[in-house]
């Protein structure tokens, strides 16, 4: 096991976000999930105009406000203070989710607990029943947005496998994931299962396969 782990070369969270950001095209309408997905906005290559949507009613989310210019009623889905960019708009909640469910958003970037080779996503609840469940907007996003990118570390706490044949945690959506970006590789969800797009620099397929719970096709 230790030999297996030592052979892995993991991208930092920032490098992983930078890698995914290369695949956000000019002109895209994008929803970023809470946590690591939110980092992607900082790495989209210059010259591309991207409109970020936040579920609480803003299209055209801008960066963190400069000190002294904060507006306490201008926040994103993470409840963080944000700004607007030129071309931005505000709207109420049912319209915000019509944007998502109605297929108007191009790409959503989400975190995950588990992704299965059939594209099933689990990212809202674990098997821990002590804590109250909380779903937010994840289930609406995954059924409506045509391209769902997952960004996550390849393995979980104690090296738990997160890419698997079938999810064991409660599902967020069935067959919804298009592509997974991890600190070890990029995988497409294809008809045959996970298909390798690329390995993070320095890794071998054998080493990455060893920490993956489903076959990686090439």
């Amino acid at each position: 096991m230790s030999q297996k782990m030592s052979a892995l070369h993991r991208l930092s969270d920032n490098d992983l976000a930078r890698r995914l950001a290369q695949d956000i095209p000019d002109g895209a309408y994008v929803n970023l999930g809470i946590g690591m997905p939110n980092k992607v906005a900082g790495f989209v290559p210059a010259g591309r105009e991207v409109m970020y949507q936040t579920e609480n009613g803003l299209l055209g989310v801008g960066p963190t406000p400069a000190p002294g210019t904060e507006d306490p009623e201008l926040i994103d889905a993470s409840k963080q203070l944000v700004t607007t960019i030129p071309g931005a708009s505000f709207f109420e909640h049912s319209m915000s989710f019509a944007m998502m469910r109605g297929g108007h958003i191009d790409i959503a970037v989400l975190g995950a607990y588990q992704v299965a080779e059939n594209g099933d996503l689990a990212n809202w609840a674990t098997l821990d029943e002590k804590h109250p469940p909380a779903v937010g907007g994840a289930m609406d996003l995954v059924v409506g947005v045509p391209t769902i990118y997952v960004i996550m570390r390849h393995t979980g706490r104690d090296d738990a496998v997160k890419l698997m044949e079938r999810c064991t945690y409660p599902l967020t959506g069935l067959g919804v994931v298009s592509r997974v970006y991890t600190d070890l590789c990029v995988l497409d969800v294809a008809p045959e299962g996970f298909r390798l797009v690329e390995l993070a620099p320095g890794n071998t397929l054998e080493a990455v396969q060893a920490v993956t719970g489903a076959k990686i096709h090439i």
């Binding site: 998502m100 909380a134 907007g137």
Partner: peptide, 22 residues
């Protein structure tokens, strides 16, 4: 909320956010 929920003093219905709005 967590205190009341864990003590069984409040019922919870979780609804996906867009479904709640709609």
């Amino acid at each position: 909320f967590e205190r009341r929920y864990e003590a069984g003093e409040v019922e919870l219905e979780v609804v996906p956010q867009g479904t709640l709005a709609e």
